Simulated assay, not measured.
Amino acid sequence: MKVLISVDMEGISGIVHPSETNPDRYDYERGRVLMTAEANAVIAGVLDAEPSAVVWVADAHGPFRNLLPEELDRRAHLVRGKPRPLGMLGGLDEDTDAVLLVGYHARAGGGPAVLAHTMSGEILDVRVGGRSLGEIGLNAAMAGHLGVPVVLLSGDDTACAELRDLVPSAVTVAVKQALGQAAAVAPHPAEVRERLRRAAADAISRRATVPPLTIDGPLDVEVDLYSPVTVDLATLVPGVSRAEGGRTVAFTAAGFADAYRLVLLLVQLATIKPA
């Protein structure tokens, strides 16, 4: 069997501040160590349950170059760098049997939640068929589009509740309790890693009981953008139009894969600044 572990950073236990997740800030190297250790705990749990599993690990935070390759469990394959197909789910395909989301955070507007946002600070909200989806929902639905269930998520308590609302039978591990956007209370990292290893084994063992999250098309999608310049750029994309309110763009996607890829494009357009 093939398993994909997508690892973000804001939902790692002990991390509460951008200085721990930003490569240009002083505490980032410590954040990388914590992130890699939690990824290793989940890899170990997957292989406890299925020793013959092929495990792919997608580095899914920021530049997609955060996990320490030399410290990662040598039994795993590391998907690293960007741009790449399917972004945070790099390595996902129809042959994947299960996805595990590690270190994930709540959507923009969710809270209290540690470092909550959706894809970037430039994306204020993504609504698919009228339902607000953050990175958790977008990635779970993209996996579901290929028939793959998300069987586990770790992050703060708000992130865990977000997945349970979408996939009630998935395993969730609250590695910290959010007190606000930049504050939380958490157990010792070693305790968290033990919990993650047990939970990953449990999730893989009962993956057949977790259905994929499917959102059938065609889909009306609205994206609220922070910058008016990004709105201007987005309307250059065929099929994308300016909606009411000045900061919202809208489009119709034939299926979820098209919606997902266009949202990824909007995230990249948001990095372009006026000349």
Rank of each mutant, 00 (worst) to 15 (best):
E222F: 11
R164E: 10
V267K: 15
V33W: 01
H61Y: 09
L153W: 05
H17V: 10
I43C: 07
T235A: 09
A106E: 07
G180S: 05
L67Y: 03
A200G: 12
E70I: 00
L89R: 00
N66F: 01
P69V: 08
R261N: 14
G31S: 02
A98F: 02
T96Y: 09
A39D: 10
G110M: 05
F251G: 00
P112S: 05
G87N: 14
G137L: 09
I12S: 00
D220Y: 09
A37L: 13
G110C: 09
P23V: 07
V221T: 00
I5K: 00
G111D: 08
G155V: 04
G255W: 13
E94V: 09
F256Y: 07
P189I: 04
S120G: 07
A186G: 01
A270P: 09
R107P: 06
S19L: 02
G11M: 00
A170T: 02
G155C: 06
V171I: 12
R84L: 12
G137E: 02
V54F: 11
E222D: 14
G144T: 11
T235I: 15
D156H: 07
L86W: 12
S241V: 15
G81V: 03
F64L: 12
P168L: 07
G180Q: 02
P83Q: 10
T21L: 01
E20V: 01
A199G: 11
S19M: 10
K2T: 04
F64Y: 14
R261G: 04
V223P: 10
E191P: 03
H105A: 06
D48I: 06
A243N: 07
S154F: 06
R261D: 13
A201E: 05
T230S: 12
V126C: 02
R32S: 08
V99M: 06
A53M: 04
E70S: 11
E191H: 08
G239R: 05
A190V: 10
L68Y: 08
P228C: 11
A190E: 14
D125W: 01
R131P: 05
L89F: 00
A116E: 14
Y104P: 01
M119I: 15
E135G: 13
N22Y: 03
V210I: 14
G245S: 08
H188M: 04
G129P: 13
V114G: 00
A270N: 12
L124P: 01
E244N: 01
L86K: 06
V102M: 10
N22I: 04
R75C: 02
L196A: 03
G134T: 03
Q177A: 09
G239F: 04
T96H: 02
D224G: 15
E29G: 11
R247K: 13
L264F: 08
V42S: 02
H188Q: 05
